[in-house]
Design a protein around this nucleic acid. Structure first.
Lengths: 192, 192
DNA sequence: GTCTATATGAAGATAGAC
DNA sequence: GTCTATCTTCATATAGAC
């Protein structure tokens, strides 16, 4: 696997594909759309990637692995504090802005497509179940865990939009506090 | 506009299209997919709808109007309690399950497609801005408002999944409480 | 590495018999 | 109202010159 500098054609293809997939969806984005935006041609694109699916794979692989690490940490026994898991999710979104807003939301054609090839259907369930511990997973607790993840996702999206692709530390705290509020933790973190 | 009984072909088309659009996205669902699932043919489908877009319109129109009503109520002066707006959003999701999970989330190809025709780009912004009142809309407040809406959406999705398409009253309260927790309201509602 | 040109299939949509 | 058959366009992907 050859790494490539940030100015390389391959990198540029991934950049515009990431953006277009995020806004129009995978199926809604054509190869022509991508090369049209780049100003190159299909022939060139297919020199760098063997298929459209391969582009998706390249885009998704890295954040997907990072998410797996977060999930596995969240599943440790005893469970880590919810603030740690939710904070890691916020940071994940900050590190991979724009593309994977719906990535661990369990919905969205992008996830569908990727999930079929990588057997990730239960990803959402795993992180929700981990967050719903240590209590027995009542419906209410599961719903709140999911709500907390939803709060992280949408809060981070808004923060990224308002601040040009970064999440300032103060806003990160705000998102985390919102997520913990949704989760229903009585004491989010000690106040100074 | 002719109304049609629940057993009618038109209704059946809308039912499977709603489901397929929700899982695979608008662009990811073909007319062949729809008629294949129905066991009918394209000719029949095109007797009932002039285009694929028209199917989307028919699916989206009703919940979209309901959402507009919620937004306008939320924008009233003085602002209604947040619990009222968020509760209305939960009820909306309960009334139109499965299809519009990403509808007011501001993301997703389905919204993109519909939004372009109906000028709804600012829908998300409006409801967030309304929820962020009456405080001046600081970034933190906006982020929390968005997080609250995200909590409603994902919480309701989970509830619908766990309970076969309905949101029981007790769970509705749980979602509302989670959303208010995300919003940061100190006193969600008076305890009995 | 990038281009032009093209193969091949599937998409949305229509015509017209029944 | 539903069918079969078909048109047209656009999709992914390839071949081969430069």
């Amino acid at each position: 696997m050859k790494t490539q500098g940030p100015g390389g054609t391959r990198t540029k293809i991934l950049d515009v594909a990431r953006e277009l997939f995020a806004t129009h969806g995978y199926a809604g984005t054509s190869i022509s759309d991508i090369v049209g935006r780049l100003g190159t041609t299909k022939g060139s694109l297919y020199y760098h990637f063997p298929s459209k699916d391969a582009i998706l794979d390249a885009i998704v692989a890295e954040p997907a692995d990072a998410l797996t690490a977060i999930i596995e940490a969240a599943e440790a026994t005893p469970p880590p504090p919810a603030a740690q898991t939710l904070g890691a999710l916020i940071d994940l979104q900050g590190r991979y802005p724009a593309a994977y807003l719906a990535f661990y939301a369990g919905e969205g054609p992008l996830l569908q497509k990727y999930s079929k090839r990588h057997n990730l259907e239960d990803r959402t369930e795993r992180i929700i179940a981990a967050l719903a511990r240590p209590d027995p997973p009542t419906t209410g607790r599961l719903v709140r865990a999911r709500a907390a993840v939803g709060a992280v996702k949408d809060g981070a999206v808004t923060a990224l939009r308002l601040h040009g692709g970064v999440i300032p530390p103060g806003i990160r705290d705000e998102i985390l506090s919102a997520a913990l509020g949704a989760l229903g933790d009585p004491k989010p973190f000690p106040l100074p």
